[in-house]
Amino acid sequence: MEPLSSFFAVSVILLGIGIYGLTTKRNAIRILFSVELIYNAANLNLIAFARLRNPPIVTGQVLVLFTIALAAMEAAVGLSIIILVSRLNAEIDLSKLSKLKG
């Protein structure tokens, strides 16, 4: 049997990749990818931690269901914002979008 720590390891690596993407990328869609990866890292963590107890806690799985649904909504809204921005600016490079900057 695989120890739970290896699941945590995968989760941390996913988080690292996500943070790396968030910091280095400028493309809005790419940043959305990174955010989704971080979400998955969190989800994996929740599921794995739910198994720590014996018997496992169901709450972890319930929370993940909620998170997945929330992530889908976030993606829908985020993507529609991206479409709107691209239509207005012909540009989705976030570093070049400064219209809302004070």
């Binding site: 943070i19 910091t23 570093s95 900057k101």
Partner: peptide, 11 residues
């Protein structure tokens, strides 16, 4: 207002 810096701070 540069997001990367926030993320780095977060990390």
């Amino acid at each position: 207002g540069v997001t990367e810096q926030y993320v780095i701070a977060f990390a």
